[in-house]
């Protein structure tokens, strides 16, 4: 009998740590039974055995091999249950899946990263990968926004570490501030400026809730970015993660296989990409 590797079958991954990031987001440090080498922007399907499965993009650096970090926002049934599991739980994991960010295409350019909410998770992985080979790029410019200061994730790194890395330019914003808030107040588009990067030698990477991605994309186009310079990390309903079940289609593309990273140019003509 012919044996084929079964792409539906998860491998074990132990939850070795859980970090409360914000009122609705927790990060899980996982130790898979075998390493899962991935590229920044690729995703995995995480199974809560017997209950359900959902796609997540790791937030840890691809060069961190033994463990993998995944930040999960409480949004539905499975993510809600995941928020309730204790340390030591064994989850299932399938992957890596999807294409990831084309770092080689970014070489020599300024990388303009715009993130919102839990969208910082994939961006963190990309950010770490970029910083590790910083000299390959003309600079890293990062703009990140969340609803309130409490909603910021990776607080320590985003507030203290990243802004101090040489070659990194960072700005933060909160839709609503508070007394201690020293950064900008307003939605993320209010901290974007056409002078942030040299537009003709840069790529933009956008990741966040659909509505935020939409307005950021429109803003970038207004600044003069071309549709093929804007990289979007798309979120669609997924099940199989391997280009078979049909759930995740945007036009002819399977988000799970041809994405989740697309240039705006690839998908702009399809209906309702932001919904």
């Amino acid at each position: 009998m012919t044996q084929h590797k079964n792409p539906y079958k998860p491998i074990d991954a132990e939850v070795i740590d859980i970090i409360d990031e914000s009122p609705t987001i927790k990060s899980f440090v996982l130790k898979p039974a075998e390493p899962i080498p991935f590229k920044a922007g690729q995703f995995v399907e995480l199974t809560l055995p017997g209950s359900g499965e959902a796609p997540f993009t790791p937030s840890s650096s691809p060069s961190q091999k033994e463990t993998m970090e995944i930040s999960i926002m409480k949004a539905g049934r499975v993510t809600g249950q995941l928020h309730d599991i204790p340390k030591g739980t064994t989850l299932g994991i399938r992957g890596p899946l999807g294409n990831g960010y084309p770092l080689d295409k970014f070489a020599g350019k300024q990388v303009y990263i715009v993130g919102g909410g839990v969208g910082l998770a994939p961006i963190r992985s990309l950010f770490l990968a970029l910083v590790e080979r910083k000299n390959d790029f003309a600079g890293i410019v990062c703009r990140y926004g969340a609803r309130t200061p409490e909603d910021f994730i990776y607080k320590h790194t985003t507030f203290n570490e990243w802004p101090n890395i040489d070659g990194v330019n960072m700005k933060l914003t909160a839709d609503q501030g508070n007394d201690q808030w020293k950064h900008n107040v307003g939605v993320v588009t209010t901290i974007l400026s056409p002078d942030d990067v040299k537009i003709n030698n840069s790529v933009a990477v956008v990741c966040g809730p659909p509505i935020m991605m939409k307005f950021v994309t429109l803003k970038l186009l207004e600044f003069g970015f071309k549709a093929e310079q804007i990289y979007l990390s798309m979120e669609k309903n997924m099940s199989c993660g391997i280009g078979m079940c049909g759930h995740c289609m945007i036009g002819k593309y399977y988000v799970c296989k041809d994405g989740p990273v697309f240039t705006y140019d690839q998908i702009k003509d399809y209906p309702k990409i932001w919904e």
Binding site: G50, E53, S239, C245, H247
Partner: peptide
Amino acid sequence: HCFYLQDTKLKDYYGK
């Protein structure tokens, strides 16, 4: 050929 994967609990194992 659309399908979905549903997680289930079997006697000694888990299943999709």
